[in-house]
Amino acid sequence: MSAPTAASTRGGDGAVVGVVVRRVLFYAAISLVMAFFALPLLWLVFAPFDRTPSLTVRLPDFTLDNFRLLQDNPYALTSLRNSIFIAGTTMVLVVVFAALAAYALSRVHIPGRDGLLYALLLLSSIVTGTAAMVPIFLLMFQLNLIDSRTGVSLVLAGGLLPAAIFILKDFMDATPRSYEESARVFGASPLQVLRHVVLPIARPGLATIAVWALVNAWGDFLIAFILLRDPEKSPAGVVMYTFYTEGGQANLPLISAFSLLYAIPVVAMYLFVNKRYGFRFHGGIKS
């Protein structure tokens, strides 16, 4: 092994050994970090395919039977449908309303705009589902929206909108106005400008917000937990929780298959965004 000359002139073999030891320790630490993050996840990878899943992580005795159990359980597939409905509705509300608001706020000077944006930013960070669960529950109770999936979507959308407006407004602010002006000079009406120019150009921003809203609503537990009573209407997050907290022996084949099915869309959407747009980092995104 040829030692780097710089190292040998300075400290001889001792320095080389030091470098090697440091390198080994460094990778040992990285392995430890990997183990810390990977170990809890392993169960989700193996158990769903195990003929007799237990809480222990082990290579599965391969089967797909566990997924067949989902059809027999009265709530499993229904809850996934509920999740699709709630997440879809929330996503549409957030994308459409945030896009309209962000565009108008970016391009037209509405009186009090800056104060409004500031207040929105403040509110969205302080009024969280947890801090406001009591008044939200009471409000929905008064509005007769307890046990309504649309009600859950409305509350989720209300919480996600301010951040969505912010991110999209930043996105629009960074888009040159000359695109729209150019179209207007050629005679396009305002709505034509929106349809022909703004919408296509804003598409990456809209897609990011759509995925972000979907992931957030899909993973929601608290709001659905406090607003929905009927298990027929509960989304997967709540049903998953009842699966492992209801009395008696936990049904591990069901839980494992169900949790994998519930997890896949999130992972898929993450991979999609990562591939399509790169995982661009917007400070402060996470509800």
Partner: peptide, 19 residues
Amino acid sequence: PPGKRDVAMVFQDYALFPH
């Protein structure tokens, strides 16, 4: 309004629609 003047403008950044 612009578009009703029979005037064409070439912008500094050209403003070609990227899509």
